[in-house]
Each structure stands twice: as structure tokens, then as C-alpha cells.
């Protein structure tokens, strides 16, 4: 963990200012804590996944970082400017969890309003609007009223609004909640494209397999507290290994505890929390104990496994 923070700090120095940085950001509504002491840094050009169960405080986190709600305590910065700074919002894109846009306007008109509010040069509006419409594949219905859109189309519009003006950091609060598989695939491509341009993405999501596919770094929150954070590969280091072995008695089986948590269902032994490099060592040990090994199945831990593990559920 310390090592991780050091590495984050090093990355921070590399960019002029990190995309997002906050220290002990806290928000309570009345007496109840929605987010408690969020401390993190998101470097530019990375996709950051903010995960957690319902009501964990993800949306609250995004709203705090955008300055849409005032923190109860703590502080932070967005692109080097203090939270709530007005001017920096010209360089920030946001798609809310409730993606609702004026139903009596067309997608083009909604985007026009946002161009105006973001103070993009008027001459660039047309091209920019066409560009984002193409990116989210909404050109065909772009002149129809938003009120007549399907839910997925409205979410695509939300994504287009967030991408308008080539922002330096984009906040997406569950951007694929209403999208079909093709749409989800498109979003992953859009996110990868953003990373290539050096745009930081702050992604709130439940869809762990998706997060696993695109995110460089994640933080998991539960009940307003960060319970784990770091690079994906580091977070998922603890894999597991299933072996089918015979000829070992109970005492011998129990002596394998040094490799990790052992789950024993008679035929199969599962060792949780085993790094891939130690698998030969484990096999060697089994053989030296007199066991006959029929199968070895290393298993990569998925983000979902880790997520459930951290939340204290059975995988």
C-alpha cells in the first residue's frame, strides 16, 4: 500500500498536475455519511474505475469532485484547480447517472446549448457537434426531439455531451447502464480512444467485467469508505489454484496452509491467494508428500471475485 502511494506520487510529479486529486473528502447528509475521507489521485491519461455496491457513495464522489455538492470537509483539486472552480469546468465532461436532457430539444440543440455554456468558439460548434454525434453513433436521429429517444439513445446523447469540446477529464457515472452489448463495446472503444488522447476518465460502474477490461486503476468503496485501491494487476495479484490429488491424509493436506487458504472437498484442493509463480512449488510439495497429482488448474482472480471477497461475501 505504501509502495503504491509512492508510485502514485511519482506519477503525480510527472504530469504538471494530476487530473484529480483529493484528500479526506467527506460528505454527510444530515447525520448519515455518504462518503467518508476519500483520498486519491488520478493521473492524466488514465481510466480510473470507481466501484462499489449500491449506496456506497460513488455518485456522491463524482458530484463532490465536480463541485455540484459542497464537501462537509476535506479538499481536492481538478486539473490543478480547487474543487468548485468555475473556469476549469470548461475542460471537464460529465455524464450524470440520471442522464436527462431537455426532452423538447433535439440532440443537436442540446449539444449546441452545451457548446454555448462551455464557451466553445462558435465557429467550431458544427464540427464538434458532428464529431461527438459520430462518436456515439447518433447522427441519424440527431435532429429528432430527445423526448422521442429510447433510453439507450438518451444515454448515448449523455455521452456525446460529456465528450463535447475535447475535455481533459471526463466523469462518467455508469455510462453503459442502458446500453445494448454493441453499445457497451462502443463505449469501451471510446474510452480507449480517450486514453490515447491523454484524457483522464473517471468511471463509476457496477459492471466489473467491463471495468476489468478498460481500467488502469480502481478504487472500491463501501459504506462511504475506500476499502481497496490501486492498479488492477496489483489488486488482483492473489489468484487461486485447483489441484486434483490423491494419496494425502488430512494432516498432510492441512500442512499446505503456508501456500494460502486451503479449501478441501475430498478430491479437489483449492488454494486461494496463491501467486502464479508459486504453483510449481506447490506441485513439488504435493509430490514430495507422496501425493499423486492428476490435474492443476491455475485460476486468475476476476475483479468480481475480488470485489465479493472484499465485501465479505462468498465467491
Amino acid at each position: 500500500m505504501v509502495d503504491l502511494q509512492e508510485r502514485q506520487a511519482a506519477a503525480t510529479v510527472a504530469a504538471a498536475s494530476p487530473a484529480i486529486h483529493c484528500v479526506e473528502l467527506t460528505k454527510s447528509y444530515g447525520g448519515s455519511l455518504a462518503l467518508a475521507g476519500l483520498t486519491m489521485t488520478v493521473p492524466r491519461g488514465e481510466i480510473f474505475g470507481f466501484l462499489g455496491p449500491n449506496g456506497a457513495g460513488k455518485t456522491t464522489g463524482v458530484k463532490l469532485l465536480l463541485g455540484l455538492v459542497a464537501p462537509t470537509s476535506g479538499e481536492g483539486s481538478l486539473l490543478g484547480r480547487p474543487l468548485g472552480d468555475l473556469e476549469v469546468r470548461r475542460r471537464v465532461g460529465y455524464m450524470p447517472e440520471l442522464f436527462r436532457y431537455q426532452p423538447w430539444l433535439s440532440a443537436r440543440e442540446v449539444l449546441g446549448v452545451h457548446c454555448e455554456l462551455a464557451r466553445l468558439p462558435r465557429s467550431a460548434w458544427r464540427l464538434e457537434i458532428d464529431r461527438v454525434l459520430r462518436t456515439v453513433d447518433l447522427q441519424e436521429r440527431a435532429s429528432a426531439r430527445v423526448g422521442t429517444y429510447s433510453k439507450g439513445m438518451q444515454q448515448r446523447l449523455g455521452l456525446a455531451v460529456a465528450l463535447l469540446g475535447q475535455p481533459e477529464v471526463v466523469f462518467l457515472d455508469e455510462p453503459t447502464s442502458a446500453l445494448d452489448p454493441v453499445g457497451r463495446h462502443d463505449v469501451r472503444q471510446i474510452l480507449n480512444g480517450l486514453r490515447e488522447q491523454g484524457t483522464a476518465v473517471f468511471l463509476n460502474s457496477h459492471l466489473l467485467s467491463e471495468v476489468e477490461m478498460v481500467c488502469d486503476r480502481v478504487a472500491m468503496v463501501d459504506h462511504g469508505r475506500v476499502i481497496a485501491s490501486g492498479r488492477l494487476d496489483e489488486l488482483l495479484s492473489g489468484g487461486s489454484c485447483r489441484v486434483r490429488v490423491s494419496g494425502l491424509d488430512g494432516r498432510q493436506r492441512a500442512s499446505l496452509q503456508g501456500f494460502g487458504t486451503v479449501e478441501d472437498d475430498g478430491q479437489w484442493l483449492t488454494v486461494h491467494g496463491l501467486e502464479a509463480e508459486r504453483i510449481p512449488e506447490l506441485v513439488e510439495r504435493l509430490v514430495s508428500l507422496g501425493g499423486r497429482v492428476y490435474a492443476v488448474e491455475p485460476r486468475h482472480q476476476s475483479l468480481e471475485d475480488r470485489f465479493l471477497e472484499l465485501l465479505g461475501h462468498q465467491a
Binding site: 465536480l66 455540484l68 468555475l86 473556469e87 469546468r89 470548461r90 471537464v92 460529465y94 455524464m95 450524470p96 440520471l98 442522464f99 436527462r100 436532457y101 446549448v113 452545451h114 455554456l117 462551455a118 464557451r119 449523455g158 455531451v161 466523469f171
Partner: peptide, 9 residues
């Protein structure tokens, strides 16, 4: 929400 995330007080 979307409007207030722009430079709008």
C-alpha cells in the same frame, strides 16, 4: 446536473 457541471453558477 448536466448544465451545472458547465461553467454555470
Amino acid at each position: 446536473l448536466a448544465l451545472l457541471a458547465r461553467p454555470v453558477r
